[in-house]
Nucleic acid binder design. Structure first.
Lengths: 202, 202, 202, 202
DNA sequence: GATGAATGAGTATTCATTCAT
DNA sequence: TATGAATGAATACTCATTCAT
């Protein structure tokens, strides 16, 4: 779709924004990383904000697509939730800096909140729909609470990773690390579903 | 301890850094917010980094203190974990921008990772010690996995709040919102402990 | 080689650094003197240090070239020494602020010593080579002593000039002044050579 | 005369100005070096310029005194010149940073030229008086030419020292280095006097 | 389609100096 | 006699962006 040149720039911006956050990266940095003249960045894009917007748009599109198919897969609710967790994990894994970028943005750039909200919305709607059988609309077991808890559990895997690596010595995002984390999250979902269904049965 | 003027400046920095992240705030902003001349900031502090360092130091000290007493309280493991979750929640609640500041820093300023790690360390050690009875050293049920999951569940309550507010219309950090969240987290801890103990008994 | 604009800036820096020393001149001063916006200075150069470095590099290159041909000219040792003095004098004369710049740097900016040394080195080596027939390696008549004495005698002509002008009323760097100084230096070289050869003959 | 505190500050300023030049030293640096509060510097002195002025005044007074006695000693002209060179050398040696300070000032701070001139004046008058028997008023052998040549030969010993040390490996201002230099300068004076008297006799 | 040149507005930080106490 | 507090003005340097070519 985009010219090769533009894709190059976008890719560099994606990497750098993810690593150092929007404010921590200059257009010069992006151009240099992309092996392109600074003015080219402005030729292909409408500036730094545009760059970020497109990166987010790309992420959101594939993020939503990834989760949608998981949500809409067949099987029990539990299986679909596990599938969604897997899809989420796989997506963030495949889109290296997504988690850090969004988290950094959410935590430090109020001007992007509305933007982020628009794109978080579908994810939330799906969670809500998926859990509607078991989850009340309000209260501590409402879908929205699980939304926060589970997305926090997934996202933090990635945002905390560089700090945890310093602490543990080994990389939490290595293949083994991710496998362990995935098993843990599955176990957590099981635990939550067990209890949710138990309280339902009562 | 610090002079009134310095306290004033530190408070402003705490607020602004929390709202917009370190890079998003200029010394000028801080000075203006504090009602002080820009040069006064440099008179009382050694620059922006020093300011951030002191803010973090303050946070960490009270954060650690808050969690320590919870970890070391009596009662069953389950009660102590619930107490810790409560303490964590209360701490972040009382230190408005702590979560956003740290999360923004972790996600966008690699140069602060080491610093953050030093102060996350005791928290992790305590979790590990607390869970040692039930939790294996390695694998999906290792303490470190619960550390990520639970701190993510707490932290995200706050970092996602402004975006969720846009989505839900009501403030997730209102008294009611926090009460609901707290109940949810207690329920989650129960769910996890139930399953952990069940697998132990087998 | 350099763009006109850059040359302009460099020229202004050369003048101002020479007049007031590195620390005594701000980038603003340079920009104003060059009739250029301050940011343009940073567009063309990597900052103040870069500017100084290039000025020095330029000076050194032409300085070395000027002295080299004199050292390597034919004739008796005495003639070659006289030629070198002339070349030195002519060079400093043609590069107005060279002497003041270097002297100011040497006397007040330790961080530039290494840099200055690297470029003084070839000059010293040549003196040493030139005098090797007459001069012992060590002691009061070693080449290095003559190096200091003679370069001091030349350099001081220029560095002291503005103060001497206040004292004498007439400009030591006027054509007549320089002619007188040149004759004096030739006389001095003759005096030194006479005595050096006399002690050799004995 | 001055309070101990003031003397302390003056001493520190003397050292630092000599090492890094006036512009390279801040009042803060001086205060810290002197182990005194910054405001104390302004209490005892009228600011940075005043400090420099007093340092120079002190130097000049002792400089003039040192040379005066040498000039006015008995003996042949040659002996008196040698004595003066010795006195000059000894003075600069005893007043470590004098040469560097003055040279740095002369080469980079036009505003101090008048000041320096006033204090160079007596030195020049004495040289002129001393050489009046042998030296014509005008031309290449005028006293003023010898003034430049000889003071340059002495002064450069000190200003170039740190750079020459990098080049030679050993310290030109060590006891041995100075002894060699002193012998060299005596030899130079002899050479100049020999030739001057020879041309006189003709 | 691409870019070298240029810049206005901003950044963190330093510094000599003043002054109330 | 001293100094902590305070600051206006300056400093080197960065940056997103524009625009003529």
């Amino acid at each position: 779709m985009l010219k090769e040149r533009a894709e190059q720039i976008l890719a560099s911006a994606r990497i750098l924004f993810g690593e150092r956050g929007m404010h921590g990266v200059s257009v010069r940095d992006i151009a240099e990383h992309a092996g392109v003249k600074k003015a080219a960045v402005f030729y292909y894009f409408d500036g730094k904000d545009d760059l970020l917007e497109r990166i987010l748009a790309g992420y959101y599109a594939s993020h939503a697509a990834a989760l949608e198919s998981a949500f809409q897969a067949g099987g029990t609710l539990r299986e679909r939730l596990q599938g969604t967790i897997d899809a989420y994990l796989d997506f963030v894994l495949a889109n290296g800096n997504y988690a850090r970028l969004v988290q950094g943005l959410i935590a430090s750039n109020p001007e992007w909140h509305r933007h982020l909200q628009r794109n978080l919305e579908p994810l939330f709607r799906w969670t809500q729909a998926a859990l509607s059988e078991l989850s009340p609309e309000q209260g501590p077991l409402a879908a929205r609470q699980f939304f926060i808890t589970l997305s926090g559990a997934v996202i933090n895997t990635f945002t905390y990773a560089p700090v945890l690596e310093l602490m543990w010595g080994d990389d939490p995002l290595s293949e083994a690390g991710i496998a362990e984390r995935r098993a843990h999250l599955h176990w957590v979902v099981d635990a939550l579903m067990d209890k949710l269904q138990a309280s339902q049965d009562r």
